[in-house]
Write a protein that binds this DNA or RNA. Sequence first.
RNA 1: GCUCCAGUAGCUCAGUUGGAUAGAGCAACAGCCUUCUAAGCUGUGGGUCGGGCGUUCGAAUCGCUUCUGGGGCACCA
Length: 573
Amino acid sequence: MEEVKAEIAKIIYDALGNEQVSLEEIESKIEKPKDKKNGDFAYPCFNLSKVLRNSPINIANDLQSKIILNNSLSKVEALNGFLNFYLNSENIVNDVLTEIVNKGQNYGKSEEGKGINIIVEYSSPNIAKPFHLGHFRNTVLGKALYDLYEELGYNVIGINHLGDWGRQFGILIEGYRRFKDEYNLEENPLQALSDIYTRINQLAKQDESIIDIARENFKKLENGDEELLKLWKSFREISLKEYNRIYEILGSKFDSFNGEAFYNDKMQEVIDILDKKGVLKDSQGAKIVEVGDNMPPCIILKSDGTTIYATRDLAAILYRARTYDFTKCIYITATEQILHFKQVFEAAKYLVDEKYQKGLVHVSYGMIRLKTGKMSTREGNVVYINDLIEEAIKKSKDIILNKNPNIENIDTVSKQIGVGALIFNYLKSGKNKDIIFDIDETLRFDGETGPYVQYTYVRTRSILEKVGFNIEKIDISKIDLSVLNTVQEVELIKSLEKFKSIIQKAANDYEPSVLARYLIDVATLFSRFYNECSVANVEDENLKLARCILVYSTSIVIKKGLGILGIDCPEKM
RNA sequence: GCUCCAGUAGCUCAGUUGGAUAGAGCAACAGCCUUCUAAGCUGUGGGUCGGGCGUUCGAAUCGCUUCUGGGGCACCA
């Protein structure tokens, strides 16, 4: 499509015959009209007005008469001072469908990232606590970015920077010792740990000696006390087991689970380097690095001499630069950490080469709140992701049993649809938006939702099954695709053409919602086609096959697109 | 106080390298299943693009200012 833009620029340039306006200038002004009635490309003539000393309307009319179209364009029209170009749709129809059929599952893939390493750090829950909605948004975003970059050919490394170290384990260990017999650690061990943690914290409010014991516990843990280390490891395992179950459902991929504990012995080097460079300064008893006038300094050592999260993040940057030689290292966290990462990234320039420092990216997302306010484990107003998934599956099962009682694999399908609705709901709007959790809104199944897109896919499969279409047995060069000329067909094909650039944009903007909304578009255009153009009942064999190819192509794009977002497509629903 | 994000239809949101009558979904109302799954499609109504000023041939989009909501502002992560 971009080539056509350059061609149009050349055509206008030739027709204009005016040296004062450069080819580049013209090309940069060419835009895609919002309304398809105004063609596929438009050139606004307003800025020519001064140069040519004429009204934009006259200029457009004049240019229209002088323009000589080439093969890829069907017509040009002057309207309201715009020159509107219409593409020769036969070419697009043929090019797009042929490409999809030839590439199949590889349609949309790019090589631009070949040999380049990109890290996506995401999910990163604090262990010993169940997954809640906040983690969910993070995880789903990260997984989508992971796949988007993979689609562009990058070598992606997914890192789950677990919150698996810190004083809270001192207190959890104490709680565990006191109350472990009162909780059911067999059935739902993670919930039990979390309950114990809440309880011991309550108790600590009244009994300060518990804090002292906790501090002592953590110190022992840091010094490698065998018994405590064993306990800590079991907490970590219990947590990971449960998290992995959820990651499986969401399609998340991790190449490393190195969390905070992993960097425990790697922070001294950071301190030494900063000290040696002379940037480590004393301030109010703490050791800090200055990071500019408009930001508070980055604290490296607290006044009690212990490290802090910034120290750990810096150690991770150093380690990752050495281990992964990354070109980009993307951090996904909620907006509340924006300042923290600004400070850390600034301080990192004393630690790693410019290449790595420039590659650090913080992708932040808006908070999820309840109607009653911010989620808080302490207050007990938390939405656990397990409960939500269960509810989503139950709802989709009810609907399926109602609409399609004889379906096979009901459990698999209701899981795919329930989870699809959840994921899609959290990816369809921009990541910066705060979300107020509303169970009815979250579990919607019609309109702009995951199930709608999945349903569209099912319809494509259903048609192909009915016709007995087999892509392996098709020789596309023997089919006249130019018969696909209705508005519905051409618009759908044009939307399929955009797939590659959509992936590109979604990755560049760190914004999977771009892809989600695109899939809604494709699904809507397919549904219009579906309503207007019959496939199975067409008598003309060539038209039937041509339409089958369009249906098949649509199915490829939807399935791939949803897959990137972490959503499975059922064949029937 | 400083700073970041958000403010578009009753609700949830698209649309920001400035462009042609501001778009969807939900909700409401009216149609479309003897034909490939109606979780769908078509149509109707619904808008001071938070307010103001400015830049421009042209502003939801850029600048300034102001209001509202949310986040952050050194020893939590």
